[in-house]
Simulated scan of single mutants.
Amino acid sequence: MKLRFPRFDRNESVSAATPAPMTEPETSQPPTESEAPILGPDELALLNAAALDYLRGLSLEDIQRRVDAVSVDEIETEAGIETASKLLEDEGIVIVRDFLDQTQLKSADGAIARVVNALEASSPERNYEDDDILVQSAERVATSYTAMASHQKTVATIRRGADAGMVDVFNVDRLAGDERNALRAPFVSEGLLRLIIEGDNPPEAKNLNLYVNRGITHTRGFHADSFGKSLKGFVYLSDVVSLDDGPYCFVRRTHVDGPWRRANQKISELAQAKTESPFIDVGMAIPVLAPRGSLILSDQAGVHRGIPQAAGAERRVLVMRYL
């Protein structure tokens, strides 16, 4: 079943509100007590709580209005590309409905089945490894982002820290067999690359990852990945129709410098990660509720987070990083 959003003018403003107070895996050792940041996880969670409470109080109609304000139906025509490009430039995010077709979704499902089988063969006490995939649970074999991205096998890492329990699968397309190229093809389509190209330097699509969230009730708060332009494409492989599903949430227009960014930069000097951004204009936040197959393209210099899920919920997302 596909979720359809009512149409609104994309220039229509989102609901006003009083401002309230998809990340690389963390692989560093936790700080010692003497090195511990003043703003630790509990303090950051407290600062993020007001924004989360506000978002949970939104009506479905309001969330749909916010999603529709940054959405397009296609990026295969000149008009579609022009509209999407302006949204990405101005807002830092664009959503493309029905980006993957049923054949492409079926290819993704086959790769996911391989991942699920491997996850079920692992445990918190032991890793799992076969000819095609390594599941890192008890012990980290590949200990950095680069090592996981360049490993000869698909690497599924069960995250620790702020997103504890989330599974990040590097190069999931390798598990699609003969359909691997078909699974990557939409992420390097002419329409998409024209949308994100800058000057004479076309972006390069890097590793294709899969995020699997199963009842992840605590997630990292609002943050940026960096303060330099960094594009990622997210495609929902499961319907995300309520906040309980743990949607991706992006704060419009935070991909460029401004007072909110500068205030958060000062605050995050007290935290371990220097891109924590707990203070946002909640009226600009978009929890992306969308059906399976939808693409979210966003600038990761903008403030974003995954909304905590309800116990028992599951969300699956393909993620392509562009450099």
Rank of each mutant, 00 (worst) to 15 (best):
L208A: 06
G199D: 10
R184S: 04
H223S: 01
F222H: 11
G191L: 05
I216R: 03
F170C: 08
A164Q: 05
N181P: 06
R159Y: 05
D225A: 07
H223P: 03
A156P: 00
D225H: 06
H218D: 10
D225W: 12
H151I: 08
T157Q: 04
D178S: 15
Q152P: 03
A147R: 07
N207I: 11
S150M: 14
K153Q: 13
N213H: 12
S150D: 15
T154L: 01
D225R: 01
A205P: 09
V172A: 04
R184M: 11
A164H: 09
M148Y: 02
G215H: 05
G165A: 05
I158V: 14
N181R: 08
A156F: 07
V169M: 01
R184V: 11
I196S: 09
A156C: 09
K153Y: 05
D225M: 13
L195W: 00
I158T: 07
R220H: 08
D168K: 12
D200I: 14
L175M: 15
E190L: 09
L192D: 00
V155E: 00
R180V: 13
H223K: 09
G161Y: 04
A182D: 07
H218G: 08
A185C: 06
D173E: 15
E190M: 12
D178T: 13
K206C: 08
P203G: 09
S150K: 12
I158Y: 00
L208T: 02
A205F: 04
H223Y: 10
L183Y: 02
A205R: 09
V169L: 07
A182L: 13
R180S: 11
A182R: 10
A162E: 04
A162Q: 05
K153H: 03
V188C: 10
A149N: 09
E204P: 12
G191Y: 02
R194I: 08
H223V: 07
G215C: 07
E198P: 03
G191Q: 00
A156R: 00
I196G: 14
L195T: 06
G199A: 12
I158C: 03
D200K: 14
N171H: 08
D163E: 13
H218W: 10
K206I: 07
V169R: 00
A182F: 04
